[in-house]
Amino acid sequence: MFNQVETGSLLNSLNIEFLVKPILILFVLGYILFALVIVRQVNLMSAVLGTNLSPILKTFAWLHLLGSVFVLMVVLIIL
């Protein structure tokens, strides 16, 4: 009986993990596209309105993109 319950919960957790992992990967992939759009957007905005802060904002946008790629790597490696 104990073994059956343990096997059942193991199967449940496996099913959930099989379901959650691809969803997380798809989400992060979508997020990388969003981060790319932000990089493009900051470049466009800076072309329309140039300010002293534009280079810093561009750096933040690139860091955001790099961060999202890093998170994808982490998700692929640890999950």
Binding site: E17, F27, Y31, F34, I38, V71, V74, V75, I78
Partner: peptide, 15 residues
């Protein structure tokens, strides 16, 4: 999964 969820959440919040 906790680490992954935290990273994704903070990335999303920063965005």
């Amino acid at each position: 999964y906790q680490i992954a969820a935290f990273l994704i959440w903070y990335l999303f919040s920063f965005g």
